[in-house]
Nucleic acid binder design. Sequence first.
DNA 1: GACCAGGCACATC
DNA 2: GATGTGCATGGT
Length: 219
Amino acid sequence: MALRKQRKTLLDIYERLYSHYGPQEWWPGRTRFEVIVGAILTQNTAWTNVEKAIANIRKARLLSPAALRKIPHKDLARLIRPAGYYNIKAKRLKNFIRYLFSNYAGSLNRASRRPTEDLRKELLAVNGIGPETCDSILLYAFEKPVFVVDAYTKRIFSRHHLFGEKADYHDAQTFFMDALAHDPAMFNEYHALIVALGKEFCRKRPRCGACPLKGFKSA
DNA sequence: GACCAGGCACATC
DNA sequence: GATGTGCATGGT
């Protein structure tokens, strides 16, 4: 009963966002590998800065696991400079690459055949890949049915009292995954819509203005 | 010039 | 287990 209400609330919000923003066509990356690189580079960073970093890697013709494996840390750090935290992110990219080669011979296709739960555990064990980056990779690179929670999700849903202010990542994720069908395409669109809404209206300092969730009442 | 962005690991209490 | 801090560029 409570779950049905939760489901209706979540679907109502989804409908509002979808009719306001339309399809988001995420992730903005051309290949699986590019999606993963973006997922790491966008940690606490504006996407416009990530685009510059990825463009630099592409221009240097290094946007592949094998190429990034060979390039020295220092050179990689220089290329991704616009994305900020470039030293730590270069290390994180290298950590992922090392994992990919030692477990899957550098093949994302091989990795994608692994059961979701196993893949999730492995990714979380890579230093520099936390819950959001991990789930972004699972959903957007591997099309696994995993709901991605980010700062906007927590902010928006706690401000609307749909879950507590101190709900952690797993609490928030469970809120969606318990109530919704496990459909990767829908999870993809929902998270992307939340980010679209967040960017426009729900930054740290909210500016609700013409927010499509204005006046929203949960079921 | 302050504030913020599609986090994460690590130190300290 | 909770809370604080470093990591850094570029846009508003």
